[in-house]
């Protein structure tokens, strides 16, 4: 379980302090999947930096299974908003970075081959990031996070650079993988539709500095033909209302 208590994060800029997150409180059960939605600049990426150990200078308490965040002992699959690929590594080396840092010697096994195939990057393995389109780079970042079989999956708008069709394929693929491994997931998005499709619970954040406006149970989660149902429509209206009021 992830437990966040009174989490506040401030950035030290040259114009003084910017408060990015303001007293966040939430519990996320192991194996659950939460989508976070909120306006730009409200601190969504910042929250992921805290949970992945990139930012360790914060106020409040953050624990994962009762222990403080430590990326050395936890397997954290982080998909960064800017993909976080290393430009001097090929696509293959980038997707295997998790294995390499964690000293797994599995290499290109069936599972990773399956992921690369499903993400449609199996033909790009020898390329360098600069030779890829934005959407391809994004899929490499997704592959890297999936292939390392994380205990905690943190996704920062992972499908933002994809076209509508590919995005929906990737969302379905992601749900599929999530069901097989039921890894605890925090999924950040700008899109109400994506929040409804992928989140068992939806956390709505306020304008900067980010506060939690509401944690919504999502009745639409894993409904068939979701996008054609009344529940879907009702929920999107509700979310939009919360977002507008915040």
């Amino acid at each position: 379980m992830i437990s966040i208590r009174d989490l506040s994060v401030a950035y030290q800029g040259n114009l003084g302090e910017t408060l990015a997150l303001d007293k966040i409180n939430i519990d996320i059960a192991t194996g659950d999947i939460y989508t976070f939605i909120g306006p730009s600049g409200c601190g969504k990426s910042t929250l992921l930096y805290v949970l992945s150990g990139i930012i360790s200078d914060y106020n409040g308490n953050v624990t994962v299974n009762g222990r403080s965040v430590d990326p050395r002992t936890q397997r954290i699959g982080l998909i960064l908003q800017n993909y976080g690929l290393l430009p001097w590594k090929t696509v293959y080396q980038n997707t295997m970075l998790g294995q390499r840092i964690k000293h797994d010697r599995s290499g290109l096994d069936d599972y990773s081959r399956y992921i690369l195939n499903e993400l449609g990057i199996e033909d790009l393995l020898q390329r360098y990031p600069r030779e890829l389109s934005g959407g391809q780079q994004q899929r490499v970042a997704i592959a890297r996070a999936f292939i390392m079989k994380p205990d905690l999956l943190l996704m920062d708008e992972p499908f933002s650079a994809l076209d509508a069709i590919t995005r929906e394929e990737m969302q379905a693929l992601f749900l599929d993988i999530w069901q097989q491994h039921s890894v605890t997931t925090i999924f950040i998005t700008h899109s109400v539709d994506e929040a409804l499709y992928l989140g068992r619970k939806i956390v709505v954040l306020s304008d900067a500095p980010g506060r939690i406006l509401e944690v919504v149970d999502n009745p639409c989660f894993q409904l068939d033909n979701l996008r054609f149902r009344d529940e879907y429509y009702a929920m999107s209206v509700r979310l939009r209302n919360i977002l507008n009021k915040g």
């Binding site: 990326p71 982080l78 976080g84 964690k102």
Partner: peptide, 25 residues
């Protein structure tokens, strides 16, 4: 700083940072 983030989230050691990022960069 962004370049280090992937490795930080993987819990890379200083030596790994050196090998995977600092030297090639």
């Amino acid at each position: 700083q962004e370049i280090y983030r992937s490795l930080q989230s993987l819990g890379a050691t200083r030596i790994q940072m050196l090998r995977e990022i600092i030297i090639p960069a």
